[in-house]
Every structure is written in C-alpha cells, then in structure tokens.
Design a protein around this nucleic acid. Structure first.
Lengths: 119, 119
DNA sequence: TTCATGTGCAACCCGAGTGTTGCACATTCA
DNA sequence: TGAATGTGCAACACTCGGGTTGCACATGAA
C-alpha cells in the first residue's frame, strides 16, 4: 500500500489525450510559433480541412492547452502554457516516484541476498 | 522561423500515445506499486480480460515504459523510468518554450503600443 | 504421464475518433 | 445593398483501438 494513484488525474487526463495526436501537436507548434492564428489560417498549413482543424482545436481547448477569442468575424487561437506545465510536473513526479520504488526494491533484494544466501 | 519543431519526436510519440489510455496508466501504477507482475496477475486487479492487458503491455513495452522478462512459464513485467523521464523533460522544454514565445509577443505588443498610438 | 497453470495467437465485434462534404449564418468592405 | 470571407453546425464514411472469446502450446507440479 505504498500506492499513490497517478493513473486518474482529471486535468492531466485531457492533456495527455490531446497530446497523443500528431496533428494536434503540430497545431500547437504552429500556434506557439506564430503566437496567434485562426482555424482557417492553420488549415492552410496542414494537410487537412478547416473543419478537422476546428475539431482538433476544440479538443485542445477542452484540455486547456489553447484558448480562442473572437475578433470581429474571426476566432484567434493562442497557446496556454499552464495546463502543459502542470502535466509536465505530474509526469516528472511520476517518474521520480518510479525511481524511488525501483531503488527500494533493489535495496531490498540486495539486503536479502548480498551475494548468496548466508544462513 | 523561430520554429523548433516539437511535434514529431519519435520516442516521445509512443510514450504520449501509451499514456493517453487510462487503463494503461492504471497498469503502470500497479506495476510501479508492486514492482513486478504477470499479465494474468494484473488482469485480476482490472475490469478487463488478460488478453486486453497483454495488448496494453505490448503498447507500453513498445513505448519503452515497461519491460517483460520470462521466468519459467510466466512473463514478469516491470516499469522502466527512462522513457518517462525523457518525455517529462521534453514536455517541460516545450512548456518553457511556450512561455518564452508568449513573453516575447507580450513585450513586442507593449513596445509597439505603450498605452495608445503615439505617432 | 497427467493435470493445472500461464502464455501466445487469431478472429471477431463495436464504439469512438478523425476526416470529409455541404450548407447556413455572421461580418466586413466596396 | 451585394459580394467576399470566415465561422458554425450536421450528416456521413472510414479507420483504428480496445475488448472479447476460443483454442493451441509450453511449462511446472503431482
């Protein structure tokens, strides 16, 4: 029962699912590079239709990775680092947790049998 | 052209895809907690069949997140932190990259129009 | 050898996600 | 006002991932 459950984290869940798709990562890259862009403009730089881009942006927005604001008749999207930062930290914590446990297991094994059994 | 393409990273790609699924995250948690386990044992602690677990473990192994070794007639899986660490760092780098760009954009905007246009 | 346990492989089902197209609505500009 | 541009919504097709079941094969124990 050393368990700290990392498997179900409401906010990171959406971020991980969003980042799993290559097209969405590409969108994030374009947005991070350009600072701001509309779905129509982004679609011109990708091999998919505008509607596909819109759907991807909706997923990214739901995950908190981007935010879109209306300016006149267009909707400009931009990147939002907070959610990504949070997930990066979650991941780093998980990794160090694994390291901790593995080190503990290794120590236990060595303590139980230094080189062979010793009576 | 400030672009540093984070969107297509061969190794992180698999890790992100692997982590996108809740059942796989749960598996990783069980493995990190128990240190080592077989697919059959893991299936008993999850609401899915052994075969489903086997498939998930294959995905995790392909991503480098777990490794399985045969011991007699059973295959024991354990967690491997390296790939996770690498992806966590990739993600942190991406996040700080976003921060950098956004800060630059903000400075540029403020420099261009301190409070209003000034001729 | 016989039985139990654990794994491997294959076929199959099903839902969700990705992508498309078509059209209606909104906004800007001539 | 009308034309151009951009967005929103809906229906549809298709693939793929997650899950299941069934059975064959391998290994350890009695």
């Amino acid at each position: 029962m050393t368990g700290t459950d990392h498997s179900s984290d409401a906010s990171t869940d959406g971020v991980l699912a969003a980042l799993a798709d290559p097209t969405r990562r590409r969108l994030l890259d374009l947005l991070a590079d350009g600072g701001e862009a509309t779905a129509t403009a982004l679609a011109e730089r990708l091999p998919v239709s505008r509607q596909a881009v819109v759907k991807h942006l909706a997923v990214l927005a739901a995950a908190g990775l981007v935010v879109g604001g209306r300016v006149g008749r267009e909707v400009r999207y931009s990147v939002r680092p907070e959610a990504l930062n949070a997930t990066a930290q979650w991941m780093a914590a998980l990794a160090s947790d694994w390291d901790r446990r593995l080190a503990a297991v290794k120590r236990a094994a060595e303590a139980a049998a230094p080189e062979a059994d010793r009576g």
